[in-house]
Computed example of a mutant assay.
Amino acid sequence: MHRRPPFPTTRHKLRNLFQSLALLAGMLTLLGVCALVVWGPQGLVWAVLTGAFSLVLTPTVAPDLVMRLYRAVPLRPHDAPDLHHLLETLSRRAGLSRLPRLYYLPSPILNAFAVGTGDAAAIALTDGILRTLTSRELAGVLAHEISHIRHRDLWTMSLADLMSRLTSLMSWFGQLLLLLNLPAVLLGGVTVPWTVVLVLIFAPTAMALLQLALSRAREYDADLGAVALTGDPRGLASALAKLQRYQGAYWEEILLPGRRMPEPSLLRTHPPTEERIRRLLALEAEAEPPVLPPVRHHLPAWAAAVPHGPRWRWPGVWY
């Protein structure tokens, strides 16, 4: 029976949790302010009800369907037994109810991503990442993705995305109403406070920044969760450094084409790699030595025979 490594840095965990809750509360407040400005008190109630019902009724996309979209190939236990043994060990330590399914993505890009929840999840590993990372680094990456599943980060980001879309919808509707009433405003028949105009114009941008900040907070928390599962901060730190060295700071180039364009740090979906590595190495003195099964063979024998990887198609989708 494997013992879960203790995690002594509770203050880091609480800080990340508080930050995520504060950002979600900020997004909810901004959504409420937009509803209040556009429709009044009744609009505020309806916005909350609409968001709640939409979140509950929105169908969950099956992880296998997402993987088929990216032409990922299932990695079965007999294809990569060592990799599956490592996955089972980390999933058991994380307390997942079901083992995530592993997929091989025939792409030279160094990338890994998870979809789904603890009840049904899948993790994709690209050909590039399997050929480049060591066993220790691969364990850190897998633990990071399992932490995303364990923390239900996909659900959290779906909630944030829903609030962002509702805010943008109300902002555009409010601006349309202002445009239609512009003659009355210019003639002095209708008075519109400048605060209302500013809220309608800048609310979508403020919501997008909060959403990006939430994504970065969840990444920090996933790094922290990975250390709790592996007891090895340096393994994940080494993987992050290698990923940045090989292809830059963005892991999800395959999912977010065009992210290599220069942009302010405030607009990054992921935290700066240097800061993530610094935080990970700060935990090294308190973590236990890693005790994980080795992964001697990362790739199945048929990996070289898999057809070409995903290609870019309009409107920015890879499949």
Rank of each mutant, 00 (worst) to 15 (best):
L138C: 15
G188F: 13
L31N: 15
V38R: 11
E253I: 05
R11E: 09
G140Y: 13
I146W: 14
W194V: 03
R234D: 13
A213R: 06
A222D: 10
R3P: 08
L69C: 01
L142Y: 08
P193A: 12
R245I: 00
D221L: 09
M163K: 15
S54R: 10
P106T: 00
W312C: 04
R245K: 05
P204Y: 05
L102R: 01
E219P: 11
G316T: 02
S158A: 15
G235S: 15
L162V: 03
E145L: 01
V141M: 06
P100Q: 04
T50F: 11
M207D: 06
E288K: 07
P290R: 10
L133F: 10
L229Q: 14
K13L: 11
L178S: 09
D223G: 15
A285F: 06
L281C: 14
H270G: 06
V141K: 04
H85M: 09
K13D: 15
G188C: 15
L105D: 03
L105H: 02
L159I: 05
A249W: 14
P300K: 12
P293T: 01
V56L: 12
A303R: 03
A239D: 12
F202S: 11
L21V: 04
E137V: 02
L86D: 13
L142D: 05
D232I: 03
A305L: 10
P300S: 09
P257T: 02
V192H: 14
G40P: 04
V185C: 15
L162N: 08
A241C: 10
T9W: 15
A160N: 10
L28R: 13
L130W: 04
P272C: 03
L87T: 03
E252T: 08
V197S: 13
E145M: 03
A304D: 11
R259P: 04
P264L: 03
A52H: 07
S135W: 07
L236N: 07
L44A: 06
G118H: 14
L90S: 07
G26M: 05
P310E: 02
A52P: 06
G140N: 11
T132E: 10
P310R: 00
G95D: 05
A285G: 05
S97I: 02
V190N: 07
A213I: 00
D232Q: 12
